[in-house]
């Protein structure tokens, strides 16, 4: 019997390594996986709170109108009426909270318009699209259009 054991003793060492490796994995796993993992689903429940803690970047459409109703009025009825302020002006939550804390940089009327109006096959054909060279000879768009109310009156 003893003789037999020596012949496969080296294999037991291999098995031992696997067993130790597996045990180590279980321990490491227990240490690394957060306690609240899987409470609501396949994620760490605390991640929800973490996300809630993050500062808001956008103030939302309603916020701007509290103080800038002149601009809101100037947009009424125009093609951009439904385009959110922050789509062009960028995230301004800090500004809406306290206007003195963040003085917004004005969007560049030469480029901001192309974000949306550059032609692309993927856009619905009904969406107004212009090639800046053809349409405006690369002049800034606000030479002719008002950003807040871009429709040019006939004549």
């Amino acid at each position: 019997m003893a003789h037999d054991f020596r012949d496969f003793e080296h294999l037991l060492r291999l098995v031992a390594i696997f067993v130790v490796g597996f045990a180590l994995f279980i321990v490491v796993r227990a240490m690394l996986v957060p306690d609240d993992f899987g409470v609501y689903g396949h994620f760490r429940a605390g991640a929800l709170d973490d996300n809630r803690q993050r500062p808001l970047a956008h103030a939302g459409a309603a916020a701007c109108s509290d103080c800038h109703d002149d601009v809101v009025n100037s947009r009424a009825g125009g093609g951009h009426e439904k385009v959110r302020c922050e789509a062009c002006h960028g995230p301004l939550a800090a500004h809406a909270d306290d206007p003195s804390a963040q003085a917004p940089e004005l969007p560049n009327p030469g480029t901001v318009c192309l974000k949306c109006h550059l032609p692309a096959m993927a856009k619905p054909a009904t969406f107004p699209q212009v090639d800046p060279t053809e349409h405006a000879d690369n002049e800034p768009c606000d030479t002719c259009h008002l950003p807040h109310s871009p429709r040019l009156e006939e004549g």
């Binding site: 020596r6 012949d7 496969f8 003793e9 080296h10 294999l11 060492r13 390594i17």
Partner: peptide
């Protein structure tokens, strides 16, 4: 790499071969 084992008796090698 040998896992500290020094056994290469013909019988152990035969077992290795089968495994």
């Amino acid at each position: 790499m040998a896992l500290g084992s020094d056994n290469i008796s013909p019988r152990s090698l035969a077992i290795d071969d089968r495994v």
